[in-house]
Amino acid sequence: MSHSSKLVEQLTAAFPEKVTKIELSPEQDAVLVESIIVRDFFKYLKDNDSMKFDYLSSLSGVDAVEHLEVVYHISSTVNKQKLTVKVKLPTEKPEIDTICDIYRAADWFEREICELYGINIKNHPDLRPLLLPEDWDEGPPMRKGWTGRDFIVKPE
């Protein structure tokens, strides 16, 4: 058993039923996390001695049509580990807790997914639009099926 799958095992053991393993590719460790424990989970990732995940490299939104996904790519410069964390959210009223006080890098990433995917970030200190104009009223543009002025829909 490789060193990395131990990581996933430790995480699923620490948060039973709330964290499950997902297969993306053989060399990529990935877990699916319930949205209610996101903050506890990332605190654990950051502070636990065997984890020490200190660097959030990216935070992305994905619209999988039947649900929304928030994907965190996170790594540890101390233990040289990488992890992909996924959180599934409902399409209607998606909400997730902020982690921008745990990882400052999440601040702008969260603002970005808030405006582009319409995901409400709970307890975020400042959710003003970042990339879109302040008077934007055409809905979150990165959602699938979104059409706005001048938007050319993909050919079938």
């Binding site: 490299s57 990216s58 992305s60 994905v62 790519h73 890098a105 993909k154």
Partner: peptide
Amino acid sequence: GFYIVSDGSPYPYRMRVRPPSFV
């Protein structure tokens, strides 16, 4: 960083760029 999600079609389902300058 480039985060690409493929659904098996000829178009990227999602192409996310993690730009350094943005951060």
